[in-house]
Every structure is written in structure tokens, then in C-alpha cells.
């Protein structure tokens, strides 16, 4: 309550300043300060919240009445239709996720298959397929430690 009164007195101060202003720029400056104070004033915010809450409540009641009418006609209401559409979009996303997983699995199997082409044996060590898998030695990445 104290806060409310202190803010209110500063609002009146600002109003006085506007009345005593000598130039339009000064009026504008004080008017801006005044509007700033009003828009954050608890009284203004409480009233605005009250208006919003009442408006929401009346809209909600109207929606509920309409829903009941549709239900009595055994027809899907707006909410049902919204939810169905929303679930369709979620399904679309799930399909995308499954596709992604499938691709990853396919890649993993492909990789496994390339590695498991032929089992290693001593005479096959110079096989070309093996050379493709092994990292190739080049002058730049081989460091001779001896």
C-alpha cells in the first residue's frame, strides 16, 4: 500500500512538471516519464490483469458451452479436431525419426559388411580389399621412432 502511495505521488509530481513545462520537448519528456510510471504502476497492472482474467474466463465459458453443444450432437468439437491434427504432426515427426534411425542402421550394417568381407589369413594379407580398409601409410603421417 505504501509503495502504491509513493508511486502515486511521483505520478502527480510528473503531472505538475508537465503543467509547468515551457517547451514541447519538455512536455514530451515528462509525458514519457509519466507514461512509464503509469505502465508499471501496481494499480494499472492490477486493473489490466483483472480485465484480462475476466475476458479469459468469459471466453473459456463460451468455449465450454459450445463444446457441450457439439458433444450433445455427437460430433467432434474444435478441441478434438485440434488434438487429432496435432497428433498427425507428431506422427509425421516420428516417421522422420524412424527413417533417420533406419538410415543409421543401414550405414552401420554396410560398414560391418565391408569389414567382414573376407576373414584374414596369412597368404591374404596383401589382398587389395584389406588394403582398402587399412589406413594407408604416407610419408607425412609416419613417424619413425627408431
Amino acid at each position: 500500500m505504501k509503495k502504491l502511495f509513493s508511486v502515486s505521488s511521483s505520478v502527480f509530481d510528473e503531472l505538475k512538471k508537465i503543467a509547468n513545462s515551457k517547451s514541447s520537448k519538455e512536455v514530451e519528456k515528462h509525458l514519457e516519464n509519466l507514461l512509464e510510471m503509469i505502465s508499471t504502476h501496481p494499480f494499472f497492472l492490477n486493473s489490466l490483469s483483472l480485465v484480462l482474467n475476466t475476458q479469459s474466463l468469459s471466453k473459456l465459458m463460451m468455449n465450454q458451452t459450445l463444446e457441450k453443444i457439439w458433444k450433445s450432437l455427437q460430433l467432434p468439437n474444435k478441441k478434438d479436431q485440434e488434438k487429432t491434427l496435432y497428433l498427425i504432426h507428431e506422427l509425421q515427426f516420428k516417421i522422420h525419426q524412424l527413417e533417420k534411425e533406419l538410415k543409421q542402421q543401414q550405414l552401420a550394417t554396410q560398414l560391418k559388411n565391408t569389414v567382414k568381407i573376407k576373414p584374414l589369413s596369412s597368404h591374404e594379407s596383401s589382398d587389395n580389399s584389406l588394403n582398402n580398409i587399412r589406413p594407408k601409410k604416407s610419408a607425412s603421417n609416419v613417424t619413425n621412432l627408431v
Binding site: 497492472l45 483483472l50 479469459s56 473459456l60 468455449n63
Partner: peptide, 22 residues
């Protein structure tokens, strides 16, 4: 800023607003 002051105001009932308007 000012939006923050409005949004944090305790009597601003965001849940009922969303329930009513979607």
C-alpha cells in the same frame, strides 16, 4: 525491462489466458 515487469506481475494469469485463447 518493462515486458519483464508485466510478465512477472503475480496477478497476470497466463494459464487461464492460454486455456481460453489456445
Amino acid at each position: 525491462g518493462k515486458i519483464g515487469v508485466w510478465a512477472r506481475h503475480e496477478q497476470f494469469n497466463v494459464a487461464s489466458l492460454v486455456r481460453a485463447h489456445g
